[in-house]
Nucleic acid binder design. Sequence first.
RNA 1: GCCGCACUAGCUCAGCUGGUAGAGCAUCGCAUUCGUAAUGCGGAGGUCAGGGGUUCGAAUCCCUUGUGCGGCACCA
Length: 648
Amino acid sequence: MADISLTFPDGASRSYPAGITPAEVAADISKSLAKKAISATVDGQHFDLQWPIGHNADIALNTMADDAPALELIRHDLAHVMARAVQELWPDVKVTIGPVISNGWYYDFDRAEPFTPEDLGAIEKKMREIINLRDPVRTEVWERDRAIAHYRAADEPYKVELIEGIPGDQPLRMYWHGHWQDLCRGPHLQTTGQLPADAFKLMSVAGAYWRGDSNRAMLQRIYGVGFRNRDDLKAHLTMLEEAAKRDHRRLGREMDLFHMQEEAPGQVFWHPNGWKIYTTLQDYMRRQQQQGGYVEVNTPQVVDRKLWEASGHWEKYQDNMFIVEVDEEHAREKAINALKPMNCPCHVQIFNQGLKSYRELPLRMAEFGSCNRYEPSGALHGIMRVRGFTQDDAHIFCTEDQIESETKKFIDFLAAIYADLGFPEFKVKFSDRPKTRAGADDVWDKAESALMQATEAAGYDFTLNPGEGAFYGPKLEFVLTDAIGRDWQCGTLQVDFVLPERLDATYIGSDGAKHRPVMLHRAVLGSFERFIGILIEEHAGRLPFWLAPRQVVVASIVSEADEYVTEVVAALQKAGVRAEADLRNEKINYKVREHSLGKVPVILAIGAREVGERTVSVRRLGDTRTDSAGFDEIVAQLAAEAAPPDLR
RNA sequence: GCCGCACUAGCUCAGCUGGUAGAGCAUCGCAUUCGUAAUGCGGAGGUCAGGGGUUCGAAUCCCUUGUGCGGCACCA
């Protein structure tokens, strides 16, 4: 066989017979490397030690010291070991797929009985036993027919279906972890003995549809996390505990911001503290919109189905709308209405009043639109995913030529607001045409290219989300991440050539003829509910001073200070600071603890000394030090801090 | 919506295999005037999510409805 040349990371090259495996290369270099190696990187591809190398290539041998390959292999092999453990414990369980995900892996099984928490413990135990067997990992390439026949004989229908879905010319790779066999593209470790038996944990079991299709079988998915060593695992589990403390549902209760109850599932009862955040944010957004050239409107909640039929929403989203039927006792004819699930059709109605000139475009029409959607019960999540919410919604009516400049303008607008609100980083996703959609393909071509060009012109990278666009047009999504790493879409920008057509929106062009405007649907926060949920989690409840619902508590140390405390509170309130007095007959320790737990950013403690000096003792949240400040000084300072970022 | 799990005082939670409900914190009362993360004592507070069943007897077992939680699917 011809020789090939392999180039190592240090630049050195060696000649080997073609078809040599990385394992053999490692053995050629040293015995210890042969033992320590876990995989190779060949021309940038993660490569199994057993795979033959057929041509000249760059090669690096990986060990457990190499982060990315090590973690990928640990998690991938653990997925296989878990599936083997499950089938050893319950031989009738059918296996499906088990990919690596962030921090771990999952594997989907078909089993009649549900897996219990006790089962997870038994599986973990069996996994450790398997790891301790130090079984070799072996791989072979199989012919397709042989693989199908094998899985038919083994009564593994999901594997048969997987293979049938793989293009015929693609080789099928089998892996054995000891006696246990799985179809897998690899790569894998040399032996299960290379797995850390004390650095993984099975986390949960959950339902998951086969191939993500809600019409198909519901499988049982077991999630696991795996790391290189026990300390990393412990650090991960600690991080999860810390993240749970930031959960907006928990902080919402602890800070007395809002509650929800079963008589109104998916809808928020805002308490005074939470509503203060909401209105402060809304006031800020209203000022931003005025600066950004928007006009603000307000439209009806209960709207006849005829409008939703005209817009096309009735056909597609009827099941997700709150239907309001007017009783025949109240009306001559029974009318079917829906609570508005979005604002766009109503905004077009405003646009359609009177003739619009091209001189009025772009017309940016904003509404803090209160919407209701009957979201599936399983989708509800705290105040992040609700059935009643308010969007910072706007529709920009413009010409095709204005799409690019309006898009760029909007992205800049959004980025500045996110920065003000403490989110300098966000993800951008571009979603193109979905399978079911309105409008002709050439219109979609136009919309997609206009939006993409504008995004690039604005200087933002985006990831493509194929087929995820709205039914009327492509969209950009601006995504923020919550405390436990879940992504939430907040801002959006959607190009729409369809709705103006359906609702017959027109303007008079410079040529004196009627033309269709384009609509850009856009939101920055998305919904106030979701955005506030993310704000709470991002700051772990310790909101920036200007957004904090309770900014200052002035606490007396002795009752002789009460009068002066009241005077300080009044002065702060007059200066626009949300201040309150705590005159209760309690120790200062007690008050400091309580208000600290309540995430009040500033506590001013006042005892006999402060009364005498007309000063205050200042304690900032998260800081155990205290400072002394004069009366006028602290009022001026806190008033300045209380100003929203756009008014500083 | 689907799969699984859960629901006990305002909150966090205990209550073994069925024998008739408990703690801490919060609340209320009394005492305490205290220097930066819990002052002491006392009182009150629950149709054990709702409904149905099994049983001499159900917080506990079964069915059902609701809501929540973790995923999946969905997200105009």
